[in-house]
Amino acid sequence: MGLLTVSGSPHIKGVDNVKKIMYGVVIAMIPAMLISFYFFGLGAIKVTLVAIASCLLFEFLIQRFLLKGKTTINDGSAIITGILLSFNVPSSMPSWMIIIGSLVAIGIAKMSFGGLGKNPFNPALVGRVFLLISFPVDMTNWPKPQAFSTALTDAITGPTPLAIVKEGISKGQTIPEIMSSGKIPAYVDMLFGNMGGSLGEISTIAILIGGLYLLFRKIITWHIPVSFIGTTFVFALILWLIDPSLYINPLFHLITGGLMLGAVFMATDMVTSPMSKTGQIIFGFGCGVLTILIRVWGAYPEGVSFAILLMNSVTPLINKGFKPTKFGEVVKNG
């Protein structure tokens, strides 16, 4: 017999570990990924592979040669960043731009803060926003979805439904006019993902399947997605009730753009979201309000990523202000 080990209690450990959580998220993203492969074909596969590979590579290089420490690329977090980055770009994105995005996401947004768990902002979103600002044309050049497309670059491109609405309104058209113009896909198509957009955001259904899986595995809780989506819906509903000719109906807001993707996969990122349940609800609320503000009155047609990043920046404040309910604090006896 060896020496007895002495350590503080507890002496047993739950089954969850970082790897399981990370790969759980990867599994949850597979439906949305498959949908993107279906509609955008080889281009989507190429973008996804490039993003994952470059994220892993940068993480490895930085940990190995810059920080000269242990490499933790197999913990799955870089894969998530890679997939999320690919989810946030159009399938026609040139590979070199994606590699730059990965470098920004991993190098600047993640490793420069100290790696996994230390980053204040969601790395993939930082990468996306960097790309959006640096290469606005390529980032808003959306190939039209075609089932089983094999072409690497789709010839036909078009704007996303949100961009169509934004453009229409800026031209002075009313919402019913825009909707009847024939440019907006049918709601069923938008629900399944048959519309222009970034790889991961098109199919609401696929994202919701992933979200349910995450909830089932207890990787995320309902608080952020529900309050995010709920706030967006209610805010949009109020605007729509005020003037349906100026503001589009709330359902449209829910199923277009990156709202679902953001609410399920990016706002729920453990590292950058608040710790307490109340804090998480506030966080989701803030994301929802900002999203609509940007979508309706902002310069960009889409505001989910900016909204989440902005809320990421106030997460430490939320953590300070909204503590969990402590036992014995509110005494209700009887």
Partner: peptide, 13 residues
């Protein structure tokens, strides 16, 4: 050594 310590690396603990 007659036993082995496993825990936070501080004498205090």
């Amino acid at each position: 050594k007659k036993s082995e310590y496993d825990g936070v690396s501080t004498c205090l603990y």
